[in-house]
Design a protein around this nucleic acid. Sequence first.
DNA 1: CGCTCATATGAACAGTTGTTCATGCGTTGG
DNA 2: CCAACGCATGAACAACTGTTCATATGAGCG
Lengths: 140, 140
Amino acid sequence: MATTDRLERLIADECGSCCDGDVDDRVAELEAVRDRASLERTPTDAAVFDALSTETRLDIVRLLVAADGELCVCELEPLVDVSDSAVSHALSTLTDAGLVERRKEGRWRYYRPTDRAAALLAAADPGLDGAGTVSGGVAE
Amino acid sequence: MATTDRLERLIADECGSCCDGDVDDRVAELEAVRDRASLERTPTDAAVFDALSTETRLDIVRLLVAADGELCVCELEPLVDVSDSAVSHALSTLTDAGLVERRKEGRWRYYRPTDRAAALLAAADPGLDGAGTVSGGVAE
DNA sequence: CGCTCATATGAACAGTTGTTCATGCGTTGG
DNA sequence: CCAACGCATGAACAACTGTTCATATGAGCG
């Protein structure tokens, strides 16, 4: 890690150069933060959020959650203004991300959202947003 | 909505052509679903998920959550393998999405995650994922 | 079996985006 | 003031991606 220049000046500025070996301590602390952050990584990584990052896919998930059951492609297609092929592509991406599940019945495929999808929408939508530090208990 | 062809066949297949005017009913029902889904839209829309859809920005948010306080750019930059400019760009995007907040102090800017950011990470990370219907418990 | 249907999948193109480099802006120290 | 610093921002380029068209797959039906 060669870019500790600014970090040293930051620490010196924060505690008024009172202590000298604090740089190493702070670096170690930051590396511990990095380790902790890495542990929270799921195998899906950013793919989960990426799957919800376009209006088409997000609309589909919202529709599936709003519908109190399951919908098939031919029901979704009239509700979003893209081709059925695009809907299918979107559903594949969402399935890979673990946000929807598929049920086959005859010629049709019924899709429904997973708990994770609903949890993500709930976490993003409500007005609990805005200000506030986070630390402490994110537990649930 | 001109693409109700398949929808008609679906309904006929589901209830065995028992009823005829059901197509309009089902279409109306689907439009109600669409209206309900639209109501849940926040002004931020898909931008929130989009902000978390890249490894760099997601890593930054994870680091801010893992750190039990606030971090500045010079502390984040050694922890992610991109330039300080990229970190700044990422933080701007995250700020616009309402996922981090900025505090100015002298030459430095300290960043901390919002509640929404923490809630989103919590909703995506835990092992509560996988199988399960979402609303109300639609047994099957 | 050959047909159609519902959906999945591959290719290709346009639009988007994440990165770095260069530079601008407010702040601090000499 | 002037220089240096921390960070923000604009431009530019490569890389990615969402869409549609074309085609494949598997299921029902005559």
